[in-house]
Design a protein around this nucleic acid. Sequence first.
DNA 1: CTTCGAGCGAGTGTATACATTCTCGCAAGC
DNA 2: GCTTGCGAGAATGTATACACTCGCTCGAAG
Lengths: 255, 255
Amino acid sequence: MTLLQTQDQSGLPQSARALRGVRDLLLSGEIGPGERLAELALVERLGLSRTPVRAALAHLAQEGLLEALPTGGYSARRFSQADVVDTIELRGTIEGLALRLAAERGADPALMREAEATLDEIDAALDRAPGAAGVDTYARLNSRFHVQLAALSGSEAVRRELERVMALPFAQPSALLDAQAKLPRFDLTLINGQMQHHAMLEAVRMREGARAEALAREHARLASRNVSTVVADAGLARHVPALTLVRADAAETVE
Amino acid sequence: MTLLQTQDQSGLPQSARALRGVRDLLLSGEIGPGERLAELALVERLGLSRTPVRAALAHLAQEGLLEALPTGGYSARRFSQADVVDTIELRGTIEGLALRLAAERGADPALMREAEATLDEIDAALDRAPGAAGVDTYARLNSRFHVQLAALSGSEAVRRELERVMALPFAQPSALLDAQAKLPRFDLTLINGQMQHHAMLEAVRMREGARAEALAREHARLASRNVSTVVADAGLARHVPALTLVRADAAETVE
DNA sequence: CTTCGAGCGAGTGTATACATTCTCGCAAGC
DNA sequence: GCTTGCGAGAATGTATACACTCGCTCGAAG
């Protein structure tokens, strides 16, 4: 289970603490969707001065987590299920581009070996602890694999863009795994995902650009499966950081 | 021809002036690729205080125009031809996603009519002044059309992402038109582009998602045609804002 | 009782002073 | 003569005081 543990921040610059601090408040749900963030209140809660807090707010607004209010100031952005599904589709599309470019232009052999090594580790992990038991290990390796995919493209522009899309917590490859682990036949989902992983690298190796692209897209759709089920389950959503940002549709009317 | 005219900024907040001011310095080439931006120097040049200038620098860094130096401070990012080509490919890919979603999910009829109206205007403009003569009008209408395309998707997530990618000046649909207008048979390029515009809307109307997507991608590639030719021509590059950011490959070694 | 206006308070926008770190140059010692 | 260390300067990072705007409340007049 992923927990938000605010780790030791000694030595970190104030601006980094502010960024972490505000982001944690949002992801932990302490600040709910739509809620306004007053600078002075944050200054008090985080024990910092206004300057770094202000910088953090501006940063998070550009990142998409906050919304700039017309009168000034910011509020926590409200995300809908459609936002989650579309953002994951977006990630799949750009990962598809990355893999197509890797296939067409040829991927760096060293990077290919690194990605393959990660898949070997996932194979071993799934063998050792299949299903929900090994979800933590799977999540960690899966995230690493997706970072390696972005690098395979050989394009700095594409790599940066992928990084940026994944700044939204629910767009990250392993974001919803903790919640989905409670769903039936979860073990098969993981195994299916890993088969797609292997196929993606094979397609790149064989220079099959269209296949690699299609696989990347379909793979991303695994992540958006059952989004509505997971979001609707308040018990789940509360403990999955990425989902605290999403208002269940029922609560949409209430303010 | 597009010129950077610093217009009246009275009434604008200092932070907006700072953002405009620094961006103009970069796009006009007054600050060249790789050059470091010292806060105090900018404060003097722009006649503002450090706070808004500092905010502008942080903003532009996240936007991708600046690069954060490890020691602190920022430098103007150096873009390669590959960055330009890949970023345009990225735009085409995301516009492809937008059109596919529009086709599959059905686009808002009102938005469709607005986009069609823009195409009618482009038709008229091309009829009146074909080729390089009407490039300014074409550029303006073309930009509007691409904004309307993003809206057709009906997805806020996709629309936002497109907006963000186009924050890089050379990713904008009409960015290189001024320079390309000097190339042979430019009039045919415009006409070809407009035919693709019509085909894109038709595909959306007919719910042909794959066709709409493919068209969007191919259409973006019109923009990256002859990038190397255009970048290599120093006379052209100097007066096209988007190209002052790109170092010609020959100059790459010099510092 | 309702409505309009003035004053007050909260909050953001801006400027600037202070702290800290990094760099560059010079000088001294090996 | 080269290297190393110390110091001055300049740059960024941070804190805080001041300015200004918006919104709310309270009071008075119609």
